[in-house]
């Protein structure tokens, strides 16, 4: 079977817009002061009129999609046969809340048809496919914190089965007033920096962003970042990967600290969540950071890595990775996801 490779990375988060901005943030080791995304960069790709009926969630995803295609050297139109899979834990919360509130407060007759259409599960994927002429299959996967590994499992299978040769895989979640309200009720407000490797204290901060990847089994002209070894999703006790190099999806939520500690045991680890925050799509950013590390052959520093209280060694800035692959780990009480990436031949 042909290997599945990453040829393009498009990311937007609090750190800025684009792969270069993300790399710069990772190299600096300094998380951004704000974890919100500025969508202004989308104007460089699409005229405002085209975006008129597209909500903020779709715009965020569209920005990531454009950036990934640009990074892979592909045109954002006429993408015949391109598949698209989107992972999102929350979906279009701003639009959905708007549509539901209109309906509940004023009746169904007052529900905006545009908000209603944008609140549909696959609307964002449809918007992107239409704009880019992506005629391959498209799908949206929502499984809260496990959305990314679950969607990636399907993406990997489509590519391995030859159902598509190229696929745009994206993870997106937006923050909103509704989510902020729920976050504060559950976790309070914290101005402290995220310290995800200090597993016994709560330090999570809500983030948002889009991380897209151009995945392909074809020989592409764009350089390869990394190749997939395997994608595993399961329930119960997590499968501890054989690779001693691990990128943890720990995000400062204290209830997850113990298991991330177990996953880190004896390994050389990295954790980058302070650069983008805590949200269901964040494992895709872990994967982007891992792919960038594999291509450069050296590690990035983990922000607040000195706070590590697990039985592990935190990879130092610019530490050589050798020829081993990297495992990206996500764990929540509902299950786990492991994405094994390798240096591409």
């Amino acid at each position: 079977m042909k290997p599945v490779r990453i040829h393009g990375i498009g990311v937007a988060g609090g750190f800025g817009t684009g792969r270069q901005a993300f790399e710069k943030a990772l190299e600096s080791g300094l998380p951004p002061p704000s974890l919100r995304v500025d969508l202004a960069a989308l104007e460089a790709f699409q005229p405002a009129r085209t975006l008129r009926r597209m909500d903020s969630f779709s715009r965020l995803a569209l920005l990531g999609a454009h950036l990934a295609l640009e990074d892979a050297g592909l045109e954002p139109k006429g993408q015949d046969g391109l598949g698209l899979i989107i992972a999102s834990g929350h979906g279009a919360t701003v639009t959905t809340a708007h549509a539901l509130l209109d309906s509940m407060l004023a009746g169904d007759a007052f529900t905006s048809p545009i908000h209603f259409a944008n609140s549909m599960h696959n609307a964002c994927a449809a918007n992107i496919s239409l704009l880019m002429g992506a005629t391959g299959p498209n799908l949206t996967v929502s499984q809260f914190d496990l959305s990314v590994p679950s969607a990636l499992l399907t993406a990997h299978r489509w590519l391995r089965e030859g159902r598509v040769e190229r696929l745009l895989f994206g993870a997106v979640d937006e923050h909103s007033d509704l989510l902020e309200h729920l976050w504060r009720r559950q976790r309070g407000e914290s101005q402290d920096p995220m310290r995800p490797l200090a597993t016994r204290v709560e330090s999570a901060r809500p983030g948002e962003g889009a991380a897209f990847f151009l995945l392909s089994t074809k020989e592409e002209t764009a350089p390869v970042y990394a190749a997939f070894e395997s994608v595993t999703v399961g329930r119960g006790a997590p499968v501890i990967p054989s690779s001693p190099l691990r990128v943890l999806g720990a995000d400062g939520r204290v209830e997850l600290g113990k298991t991330y500690g177990a996953m880190a045991e004896g390994a050389r680890i990295a954790c980058f969540t302070p650069h983008y925050g805590s949200f269901p799509a964040s494992p895709a950013f872990d994967m982007a950071a891992a792919a960038l590390m594999l291509r450069r052959g050296h590690a990035f520093a983990s922000p607040q890595g000195e706070a590590n209280d697990t039985e592990s060694t935190v990879l130092a800035a610019d530490e050589a990775l050798g020829t081993q692959g990297l495992s990206c780990l996500t764990w929540v009480p509902e299950g786990f996801g492991v994405v094994d990436l390798a240096i591409s031949a």
């Binding site: 009926r53 007759a109 007052f110 529900t111 905006s112 048809p113 545009i114």
Partner: peptide, 8 residues
């Protein structure tokens, strides 16, 4: 579609 939106 905008016509429906206008009415609302």
């Amino acid at each position: 579609l905008d016509a429906v939106e206008l009415v609302i």
